[in-house]
């Protein structure tokens, strides 16, 4: 079996040690780092995503695969940076101001990282200014906002308004999620996407980053 296939299959099985071992081997054998990323690590995570959707594997399996993905990525990232190869994108995430609930947001973060995104997690109780400024500074493609309370979800609108005010709305896309949030609400406040769970959030973020 070729090395990239070994990476992707071990990633599917959540074997972080093997993924690291084969990523190192691939680097040693001078396989182009972009191929290691796309045809090894990301290919493996794509399979994991499909299996998860089909209920063939469960969330812990996805997270183990994500963990294995990090182990490969940690090895590969310095080379990607050195060679000027961009990752698939940076995403700034956080729970909206006034809201301390971060379980859903954390899960989205893990899954995004597992899918190959660079994730900047601002934590919870994040102000609109902080979301926008950090996203601009990091050159992030997407801001992901989470809320659990109907009282705090309105804060998401403020982030989008602020992006509009600063002329960043086309450049930085927004995705929202959380128990009280819906597709309708996303449309109403002008968010670019809505993720109904962590896996769908990853799908939507991928779509948003491809749109650019």
């Amino acid at each position: 079996m070729d090395i990239l296939k070994q990476i992707s299959e071990n990633l599917r099985g959540g074997n972080d040690k093997k993924v690291l071992e084969f990523t190192k081997l691939a680097i040693e054998q001078k396989i182009p780092p972009k191929d290691i990323l796309d045809d090894g690590l990301i290919a493996g995570m794509d399979t994991v995503g499909k299996l998860f959707k089909a209920h063939e594997i469960f969330l812990p399996d996805v997270l183990l695969a994500a963990k294995a993905m990090y182990s490969g990525m940690d090895e590969l990232k310095p080379i990607l940076i050195r060679e000027g190869i961009p990752t698939i994108g940076k995403v700034v995430i956080g729970t909206i101001q006034g809201d301390l609930h971060d379980i859903g947001k954390n899960l989205v973060g893990i899954m995004l990282k597992g899918a190959g995104f660079e994730v900047i997690d601002l934590g919870n109780d994040v102000s609109p200014e902080k979301f926008v400024e950090r996203a601009k500074k990091e050159n992030a493609k997407v801001i992901g906002m989470s809320a659990l309370l109907t009282t705090t979800m309105q804060g998401m609108r403020k982030v989008i308004d602020l992006l509009n005010e600063r002329g960043l709305s086309g450049e930085i896309k927004t995705i929202i999620g959380g128990a009280p949030v819906s597709e309708e609400f996303a449309r109403e406040i002008g968010a670019d996407a809505y993720g109904y769970d962590a896996a769908s959030a990853v799908d939507r973020v991928k779509k948003l980053t491809r749109e650019k």
Binding site: L59, P60, L63, L64, N106, L107
Partner: peptide, 20 residues
Amino acid sequence: EKHLLISEHTLRYLREEQYF
């Protein structure tokens, strides 16, 4: 860890404790 989704304990007992 902030969650136990991939804890050894979870992986060992998930399918015994929960019917899917």
